[in-house]
Design a binder for these strands. Structure first.
Lengths: 184, 184
DNA sequence: CGCCGAAGTGGACACCATGTCCACTTCGCC
DNA sequence: GGCGAAGTGGACATGGTGTCCACTTCGGCG
């Protein structure tokens, strides 16, 4: 891979910082590519050269956080990592996703602009994880149940729970934990 | 209420028929107001006079079907109507919503264009229903659990299950029935 | 049955957001 | 220090929305 030019790296950092701020304060769906370009102090061609759309920017911003979580799921300590029974692992997974949403729900919503949640790489990872837990537990129709159990983690639902219904994250976490224990 | 003029009634019928067809063949999010106006043979001001956006058109198209279902939920025979235990009622509700989505998923998606699912009138009705069943069953944190149990009925998820994963509706229905029985 | 006022109509127009183009600028290798 | 390629930015074109207002149609009333 060719080394990135310093002016390109500087502009990329400015774009991500500007987008992070705009997504957090206004919500990703109320921010235009032009808004981001102006806030970053670059032209639109500069922005489009690196990121084709807002979803790509949101994915870039989330990448580090999601990779860290995925590493903990694959090889961290139980119950998020391997070595705990499926119900405990699913409960820990739910808690971790609630934490991710609490920190970054606006970015997660941003990754879905103009594309389906179900086609994002992250969704594929979560789904594979839950599917493996269901198979281990021997539940019927795990391929259907996996998406049903992931459904409550939709970012638009989380935002509604937190900002409209004003549920504390702890209550959401506990309710999802109850669900995990009843289903597995 | 003033009687509707015959030219207005004729144009409204044409708009709804055109939108029904376009939503079914192309998907609501790929159809413009201009597409609908042209297919209906009316001007855009005529369309906008009656319907401010595509979501309103989809709501108008769904109205009859949703009202019929809501009537059955309120005063039809059990287990969809009153008189069965909560777990049976929730199972019947899930089956009825799967039927509605199987018939009209493109319209339901249309009702969410430009607005959150959670702010639609229909969602409020489903949520009130599920909440009353959870309270009757005495589950903890019913206000949180209600949305969690409604999450698997998201129309974008249903389309993904049917068109990408190719799950038959019967499997979705059975899996949701299992969930209802395990949680209540 | 004809008239009249109000409701209804339609396409030109203005606006907004996206995405591209290409002349110009900057970077980094030799 | 020079040169070629990467990078840049704002003018421009396009598509979709939503409004305007001159014109048309409807239905109630005398």
């Amino acid at each position: 891979m060719a080394v990135e030019r310093t002016d390109a790296a500087r502009n990329r950092a400015r774009v991500l910082a500007a987008a992070q701020e705009l997504f957090a304060t206004r919500g990703a769906d109320q921010v235009t590519m032009d808004d981001i370009a102006q806030a970053a102090g670059v032209g639109r061609a500069t922005l489009y050269r690196r990121y084709p759309d807002r979803a790509s920017i949101a994915v870039a911003l989330l990448d580090e956080h999601e990779r860290a979580l995925q590493a903990r799921m694959l090889s961290g300590p139980p119950p998020l990592g391997p070595g705990a029974p499926p119900a405990e692992r699913l409960t820990a997974f739910y808690a971790a996703l609630v934490d991710l949403l609490e920190q970054h729900v606006h970015l997660v919503l941003g990754t879905e602009i103009g594309q389906s949640r179900y086609r994002t790489g992250a969704y594929g990872f979560w789904r594979a994880h839950v599917l493996s837990l269901l198979r281990e537990a021997g539940t019927p129709r795990p391929e259907v149940l996996a998406d049903v159990l992931l459904a409550p983690l939709a970012p638009d639902l989380y935002r509604y729970q937190r900002e409209v219904l004003e549920h504390p994250p702890a209550q959401i976490r506990e309710t999802l934990g109850d669900l995990a224990r009843r289903v597995l």
